Simulated assay, not measured.
Amino acid sequence: MQAVTLGPEGTYSHRAAASVADDVEFRESVTAIVEAVADGEYDRGVVPIENSIEGSVTETLDALTDREVAAVQEVVTPIRHALLAQSGEFSVVASHSQALAQCRSFLEEEYPEADLEAVASTARGVEHARENPDVAGIGHPANADGDPELRVVAEGIQDKTSNATRFFVIAPADERSDAGGKSSLVVYPNANYPGLLLELLEPFADRDINLTRVESRPSGERLGDYVFHVDFAAGLYEDRAQEAIADVEEIAENGWVRRLGSYDTEHVIH
């Protein structure tokens, strides 16, 4: 099976993707990954959906709103950030914006004068560090293994030791499954009135379904208009889930409800 994820080689996304596919190729953005899977270019895509420190990855949420794909698995992996450079002397730290944010306290305390540069991925920042002695990258410490140009300047630099990221394994929409321990929906009610969000959530509470994540994103249609991303701890095959979704569809009758699918969770530690 072939999968596509954020590149280049060595990103945390690559590590997650390697757990589901032997053949992994790369794109420079989450949007490009979702589009490639939706268009049938790849069997699977692996995209970050949520980090335990920085929260949801908004580019992923927006891409899942714009294109029809299925979520077929959830991969959770711990994040072990290291500072990688040619030496201990540098003036720029380059990495993905999420990684920079996850290491904010360390960078402010240890390298307050360094300029922070957001790049497409952690591995891209490591590449910059490999090419430029004035740049340090943030990434998994294994990125420096066997590399004569890089060394680990500091390890475990994330602000919280519990740092972990959830990834969705996505597939073409016709591979959506109703079986699994968790499910995800994207809901666009195309409405805005007092109590709307409460109405959308009550069908789950009434049936004792635990909501594990609720996120709103601007629809892009008009100010104050939102799309809701909902994860819940039940499979779409369950009667209670089907009943709850039917109620949500009735509330969102002027918009739409998209079932991303049901899936199980795999924990990848490496």
Rank of each mutant, 00 (worst) to 15 (best):
I79N: 03
W256V: 03
H14Q: 13
E155Y: 12
N192G: 00
E175K: 05
N163L: 15
L100W: 03
Q242N: 06
L61I: 13
E238N: 11
L84D: 07
S91K: 13
V37Y: 11
Q98E: 15
P8S: 09
A16N: 00
F167G: 09
S219G: 13
R258W: 10
G139H: 09
I79H: 03
D231M: 11
G181I: 09
Y188P: 04
G88V: 10
E243M: 06
R207P: 10
L197W: 01
V69S: 11
P133I: 02
I209G: 00
D225T: 00
A136T: 06
E127Y: 09
F204Q: 10
R213C: 14
F26R: 02
A191P: 00
E149W: 02
V227K: 11
A38Y: 01
G261H: 08
G235F: 06
K160Y: 12
P203K: 01
G55W: 10
L260H: 15
D178T: 14
V119Y: 03
C103Y: 01
A233E: 15
L100N: 05
H270G: 15
H14A: 15
V4I: 10
D147W: 02
A36Y: 03
E215H: 13
E68H: 03
R176E: 01
G235V: 06
I245P: 02
L100S: 07
I33R: 08
R207D: 06
H14S: 15
V248F: 00
T212I: 01
V24M: 11
L185S: 15
L223H: 12
E215Y: 08
V46D: 03
S262A: 02
G261P: 14
F228K: 02
V152M: 04
A142W: 10
T5R: 04
G235K: 05
A94Y: 06
P78I: 07
R222G: 15
